[in-house]
Nucleic acid binder design. Structure first.
Lengths: 229, 229
DNA sequence: GAAATTAATACATACGTATGAATTATGTGT
DNA sequence: ACACATAATTCATACGTATGTATTAATTTC
């Protein structure tokens, strides 16, 4: 017996209460729109609890995000690798890759509705202190998807693929936000249909042949990193 | 002579200073991330100036956004109508419509770089008090584009077109944010090339034929309006 | 009884807005 | 063209409340 943490009467820990409340409120109002007191009240815990369990508001925010983001990314990679294994030597169809990329987002949106907003927010415009955590968690992921896509789209320039992948991400993120406004959008088959449509939309864009007059059009548009003032 | 407002020595009014500072800071940090004191200092004016000229922080935010959003939307409609006039009776090519829809955003991004972030922010996740102003300003616009697209995409279901248009908007918005991180992205020809690519990407998605098993897939997913808590 | 957790309160700072005096620009009568 | 009265604008400051975190005591759990 090494269990060193005391147990509550219910198993719904103070820590978890806080994470859930933070997920909901931060997703709805953003980092700057939620105060510690509002959080504590929503979670039904004491004001000091957040500082005690997480150290600071920033740390709570980071953990709230990463808690689900990690497992979601893991599932993405798992799906891709599994698909690649099944496909053997030949490259995957583009729409299959896109499906692996996007499906876990939809799934996590169904299981944890309030996380979807937080996710969209943080992928769209993360607060500065989240930049590194996101990069670290996301970079290996997108690299693997990028090379998979390159294998399925021979001859496509690196820059162009990056650009188009970004476009696709945008489609996903905006839908995630708008989804909140659709009343019975939590229906599973509706979700599946929208997912199919989205995969189709993005795949069409990825596979289309570029318009002319686009030779050598950009000197490395995506720098390794940046500094936001 | 009815001129009732006094003139400053310089023509860079306190009002304009405030609007410019607000554009920059609100775009960078969001509504809740910027205080009136920070704003006043950035603008180089007194703290009371904002309340005097705009009445409240909300009002300043709204005006900061609408100032450019209005003219941008007007230009969009102007481009579309002009193209339709030139085309006469036959429907426009989809990529032409998309171009009219998107080009003014790029142009305004070139002319007013810091507005692009604010625009993306507000179209992605506007603060509650902006909802109505956006709807009022945007609704006639998208309706006109929607019917134009329907004319060029005969047989496409209303819902599907809405969905795909949303996807396209997402591509645009995410790019607007990421653009800030691209060092010499303010170059005009680079911009033109990316615009071309984006128009192409969105048009490809809009024109693609849907995957099967999508018959009667959704009972009106986009309600007239909603209420965000 | 020792460690972990909860609770209550305090601190300095920042928030948006209101107030009223000081200052500047303006329209008008001469 | 000049002065004057009035409106428009700037400025400094104050108010009540909210912010994130630190502190310290009470309580619970092992």
């Amino acid at each position: 017996m090494k269990k060193s943490a005391p147990k509550l009467s219910s198993d719904y820990t103070t820590r978890d209460r806080l994470l859930d409340a933070a997920e909901r409120l931060f997703g709805l109002r953003g980092y700057d729109g939620v105060g510690m007191r509002m959080l504590a009240e929503e979670a039904g815990v004491n004001l000091g609890a957040a500082t005690y369990h997480f150290g600071s508001k920033d740390a709570l925010y980071i953990e709230t995000f990463l808690r689900r983001f990690r497992t979601m990314n893991a599932k993405r990679l798992r799906l891709l690798r599994q698909a690649e294994e099944e496909a053997g030597a030949n490259p995957l169809p583009v729409c299959k890759i896109v499906d692996c990329m996007i499906r876990p987002l939809f799934q996590s949106g169904l299981e944890h509705p309030s996380f979807q907003l937080l996710l969209a927010r943080n992928l769209f415009m993360p607060p500065a202190f989240l930049h590194e955590a996101i990069r670290k968690e996301l970079e290996p992921n997108i690299m693997e998807f990028h090379t998979a896509l390159l294998r399925s789209l021979p001859g496509m320039p690196d820059n162009l693929l990056h650009l188009r992948t970004m476009f696709g991400m945008g489609a996903l993120l905006v839908f995630s936000v708008q989804m909140d406004r659709m009343p019975l959008a939590r229906d599973a088959t509706f979700n599946e249909n929208v997912l199919k449509e989205m995969v189709h939309f993005i795949s069409a864009g990825l596979q289309s042949v570029s318009p002319p007059s686009l030779e050598e059009w950009l000197p490395v548009p995506f720098p390794p990193d940046f500094e936001r003032r």
